[in-house]
Design a protein around this nucleic acid. Structure first.
Lengths: 363, 363
DNA sequence: CGATGTTTGTTGTTGTCCGCAACATATGAC
DNA sequence: GTCATATGTTGCGGACAACAACAAACATCG
């Protein structure tokens, strides 16, 4: 340890203060004192530090109506630190530039031609990024991601693609690569309404079906859950992944329907065939989910992407087939819901992942 | 924070030092200085502290053959802190008293009558514990455990049993209740030869089949994996849990065979019927494992309990059915092995869980 | 066998940090 | 306008880890 350990302590506290502000939003010094368990004077010193470094801004004297001297309000300066999040999907690449405190500073989107490979996608990301001054850059990719390598992505058709290297070559800067579903789970937990669940499973329906898990309050690093390739019908339909009876293969009829919305809408309107397709797909989803719930024991399951539409149209089928595949004790505490952030979840979560690293590196 | 933060720092370092010694065994002061990244003088001060409190012992002057003054060897004093680990199984209750550094100080075992309930098992644990001076007491129970409550245990036949309360009533002291398979995973990682796997899945075959997971280097708190109740054959055999086609139900023929050893031995000897049973069971196990591997993405899988025998007799069947149920990218990095600690894993791991808490509380 | 070099433990000093208490400041209540 | 209350500010003290200088213990070499 090159630095004296006592300075390390200061850095930790400074980072904890910034983290608190970033995650919980503007707070008074009194609230910060309570939250961090430090002394008033210590909070004061830390605030002075962060104010001088431009990370926070203090607005004095907002009267609350209670007795006593009003406490100073402290808030993040969004521009002080920014993270660029990039979402790579089958048909588009999106970018969000997010400032400290979670403020959205800019967005951009370009179409991606189907079947694009890693370098092509990275090139688009580089174009979107241009010269935005982001301290961290994070990419969210649907599929099995491990240490920057996209081991398998049904949606993008990539196998063992070292996408981090592609990005770093295209942009000349350092990247983090996260699984889209895990990123979305992080987003829902940090900026959505899933604060309370320490064990959160986010299901993502895109061109493939994946899932991301937050276990014991922290995202599973390394790799995501290939929900689409859970075998729901041993010896069934041959899947493009090579296995037989995968969820994706068995749901094929649903996925191939003109559009998901059209099918679910038709089902709502009473179209018997559509209703049948939706019901069957919901049942298959429930079965696959059953295996994952048994293995990962979440408290809460969010249906993202087009799984949201499917779930809303076939909740009963999902629940009943889930009931046939998981123990009642596991189901008892399970909440099935739809995400609060909609299609913004992955970008928001990816940015949050960047901020976590950024603030963590300060200490 | 009642304590001054600077004393907190000292406590952290003291705890880190003790943790290092507990986990890595006796080390010289020079090695500790390197490992903890602190100054020689700081290590000296910490060692003095811990020596005076009786936690460590220093043996001076062991010559290593290298130049320079030989470094003082530091080692834990086993009796300084002890943890009692209790393993509750269908037919017995076992206890191990483990000292700091992992030294086994005492063992005991009593038979448990089949069908015993929580209070009865707790009473036996209390008798075994007697007046052993353990700072922490941890129970390992096969099944789905959450916050001291055994939500479901096929082996013990318990459902939503508040076993922690049973134990605390019987012994008048505080208990931790861990899932047996998770405890075993912890044991294999800390005292076995699975140091390198940050994502470890331990499969336990007892009267039921469960699994425990270490994800990103830390045990999944809360609950374990009910591997025996993964549905491997939708609409198949009715299981005692109420579901249909669970692994346990489908493997029934194997489990009910006079003894597992007899069947696997017969299979080795060439008994065609036995070979058939073993092969089929291995295939079912592989299929269930496939779902869990997809959802939990381990690097390493250990076959514990009688699954060890099954795996050793049917590795090909397990691997081939696993290959039909998981993506090649997931299988590529997967190592299938048998545990190094044998049937001691759960007790050792439970004790280790206690020590983790004990050392963690010091800071 | 003694001189030298090397590694490690020990001791006194220094810089930093946090908590505490006293004081200053800003508000509401009467 | 005065008092009570809550909060920011300042100076002081206690604690800690790093640092440097010194002492101790060993190997090597002539």
């Amino acid at each position: 340890m090159a630095r004296p350990a006592t300075e390390e302590l200061r850095r930790r506290n400074r980072s904890a203060l910034l983290d608190q502000l970033h995650r919980r939003g503007p707070q008074t010094r009194a609230e910060l004192t309570e939250a961090l368990g430090l002394n008033r004077s210590t909070i004061g010193a830390l605030a002075t530090d962060l104010s001088e470094s431009g990370h926070i801004q203090e607005t004095t004297g907002r009267s609350t109506g209670a007795a006593g001297r009003p406490s100073t309000l402290v808030e993040c300066v969004p521009e002080a630190e920014t993270v660029a999040a990039v979402e790579v999907r089958a048909d588009r690449v999106r970018l969000a530039l997010v400032g400290l405190g979670g403020t959205l500073l800019a967005r951009a989107e370009v179409p991606l031609e189907p079947g694009a490979d890693g370098p092509e996608a990275a090139e688009l990301a580089a174009r979107l990024l241009a010269d935005t001054p982001a301290a961290e850059t994070v990419a969210a990719v649907p599929g099995l991601v491990d240490a920057g390598v996209v081991a398998q992505s049904t949606e993008l058709g990539w196998v063992d693609r070292d996408f981090r290297t592609d990005l770093e070559r295209a942009t000349g800067r350092s990247w983090r690569v996260a699984d889209l579903a895990t990123a979305a789970a992080v987003g829902e937990r940090s900026r959505g309404d899933a604060h309370r669940s320490p064990n959160l499973l986010y299901l993502h329906g895109g061109r493939g079906v994946t899932a991301g898990m937050i276990a014991d309050g922290r995202p599973r690093r390394g790799s995501s859950i290939m929900l689409g390739h859970v075998v729901v019908n041993p010896g069934g339909q041959k899947c493009r992944c090579g296995l037989h009876g995968c969820l994706e293969a068995e749901m094929g009829t649903f996925e191939q329907s003109a559009t998901i919305e059209a099918t679910t809408t038709a089902a709502w309107m009473g179209d018997t065939a559509a209703r049948e397709v939706v019901h069957r797909s919901g049942g298959l989803l429930g079965r696959a989910l059953g295996s994952v719930v048994t293995a990962a024991t979440p408290d809460e399951v969010l249906f993202g992407g087009w799984l949201r539409e499917l779930y809303l149209s076939s909740a009963a089928a999902v629940r009943s087939s889930l009931a046939e595949a998981t123990l009642p004790q596991l189901r008892a505490r399970l909440r099935l819901r739809t995400p609060a952030l909609g299609s913004e979840g992955p970008l928001i979560g990816a940015a949050e992942t960047g901020f976590e690293a950024l603030i963590g590196e300060m200490r």
